[in-house]
Amino acid sequence: MVSGSERVTILNEDAVRRTLSRMAREIVEVNEGTERLILLGIQRRGKELAERIREEIQKSEGVAVAHGSLDITLYRDDLATVGPRPVIGESRLPLSGIDEHAVVIVDDVLYTGRTVRAAMNELMDWGRPSRMHLCVLVDRGGRELPIQPDVVGRKVQVQEHQRVDVLVPELDGRLAVELVTTSPEAA
């Protein structure tokens, strides 16, 4: 971590679990059930969150909904300018495809909206979903594109020099949402 940064927990493990559980119910609600529902997690943390939401839906509804993962690297709008090329993650869609399905895009943090734009473009190349929803654990504001989430875990006000980290056990060893403040010199 950058020296001079300070971390404050916004949601601890239990709080994240409760939030995900609520988000799972909301997803079922806005889609009026689990019929033709697909949960697509954006690589990398969105994918882990989507997996947890899927477990919650299975608990409450008794249905294992179709799921997959999406890597949006190749659809980024800044590829022409970024330096070392990002490693491309796996995109895996259900065998059924996404045509005539209700696709829920799951990501950890919604910020500029550019990732979601990329994800939507990519899905359009994959097929024609009957509808798309956007589900994020944290909405930190700061949108640069006209994109709004349908299901939100928590809205967070973020100042300059602050960042929201979503931590998942598979990648970070724990489940939490933290607000990181970096001192201007360190940033």
């Binding site: 022409a80 970024v82 330096g83 910020y111 500029t112 960042r163």
Partner: peptide
Amino acid sequence: LYLLAGGAPEQAEAAKQEGVG
């Protein structure tokens, strides 16, 4: 093609600074 296209070394730093989109 993907690895060679675009990316210039001097822009590497900028890419590192770029946060979660």
